[in-house]
Nucleic acid binder design. Structure first.
Lengths: 229, 229
DNA sequence: TTGCTAAGTAAGTATTTTATGAATTAATGT
DNA sequence: ACATTAATTCATAAAATACTTACTTAGCAA
């Protein structure tokens, strides 16, 4: 009748844990990947090194062997995820398009980037909670955001010259605006959903949001100065 | 010659800590205030109950005496800070103004609210990091965001009817847009500042941002459908 | 005055969590 | 085969941290 108490407490202990095959590159990559998910989902302070290593299935000691500390692991993750975005932006080729098409494409690209990279959005949020403590240390970030701003300046100038754009906005302001339109509902999806009773994170709403963002930016640029009725 | 080692370690120990005067309301209020700052600055997981009580100058036990747990204290703070905003919105009186003025006033009000309430912005960020875990529990939040959306709908409809607005946007989309324009640079100020090398949190930039946001929304609404050049 | 209630204090404990020293074992070159 | 290096494991230190137990005392009503 008596059942061993121990059994219920350790239900998943593999009888013979066969040792992990040795592959430092794989292990490091897996840890980075796992850490990214953990930091994104829980923030730096909420993240647990234990969960990170458990998800990989390796010994906690390995994390310290390869990364040194929780902080250094976090920095590594930040650098890793910020490295991607700039590369993508380079392929936009905005100068080749007419101003209206170029602006449309920029908004579409920006929207789709944030929509398709929730982990980037979450890491950014967390980094801001930490007041940018770590991002300022990284080199990869500072690299060339200027080309993008210059490209936008060019689009606006050309649009003005050709007469399709009736207003001249500052390039950085416009870019921040595009980012804001693309990302704010992702950053604040849960509170906004709670407040308005509409699921702003649903695919349907996001689709509408995409169309709205494009339309709004283009309409703002092409508008005529509020002429009297 | 020999200096007591202890002295350097406890430089500020008040010789005789006179007991705290008894005032439960004041204590509770001070704890809420202190907790708000702590949660806003460090997030739920980063916040330390020790720091919260130390800032108040009371015994840690009191926090549990009045609030029960760190979580319950957090919920109390969330409810407290979300209670304010809706009240303010009520006084807007948008229906009395002509459509253009009403929309301008809405953008101005929204911008100024976020700009002037950094703790609200930070608590919102943190609540979203926690996936809205706590905000969904609170009653105060769900209260009447519909009147605001209805008011915006009304403005847009009137603007269309009067011919000042050439485009018809969904009211919720427009409101999310206004919030996004107003708050995104505050939410992401540190990363954006690091990336673009411009301090987006400086008073000057925020002033420009305010003008830009107003202009952009009004231009988008009053624009003519991209007529050929 | 007396005695009760609750505000406040002192001093913890239990637990979680990050981090390490040292042993072990696999892979690799000679 | 052997030695060397480094990848991995084991066991546990060390610190932080949320929360409690047990107690003291101020304020107040009868």
């Amino acid at each position: 009748m008596s059942v061993p108490v121990e059994e219920s407490r350790m239900p998943h202990t593999a009888p013979k844990k066969q040792p992990r095959s040795r592959d430092p590159e794989r292990t490091k990559a897996q840890l980075t990947e796992s850490a990214l998910r953990e930091f994104a989902d829980h923030g730096f302070h909420g993240a647990r090194v234990d969960r990170i290593t458990r998800a990989v299935g390796c010994n906690p000691r390995l994390l310290y062997h390869y990364f040194g500390s929780k902080e250094k692991l976090y920095v590594s993750v930040i650098e890793h995820i910020f490295a991607d975005i700039r590369a993508q932006e380079r392929d936009l080729q905005l100068a080749r398009l007419d101003p209206l098409s170029a602006m449309r494409r920029l908004v579409e690209f920006t929207y789709d980037f944030f929509d398709g990279n929730p982990l980037f959005v979450k890491m950014t949020r967390n980094e801001n909670l930490l007041e940018g403590k770590f991002i300022v240390q990284t080199q990869a970030v500072r690299t060339s955001s200027q080309p993008l701003i210059d490209a936008i300046s060019g689009i606006i100038a050309r649009g003005r010259a050709e007469g399709v754009f009736r207003h001249e906005y500052d390039a950085l302001q416009i870019y921040i605006t595009i980012v804001a339109l693309s990302a704010h509902h992702l950053n604040n999806g849960h509170t906004l959903t709670a407040i308005f009773g509409v699921d702003l994170l649903s695919p349907e709403w996001r689709q509408e949001r995409r169309a709205h963002s494009i339309e709004l930016v283009l309409n703002a640029l092409t508008s005529s100065k509020s002429d009297p009725v």
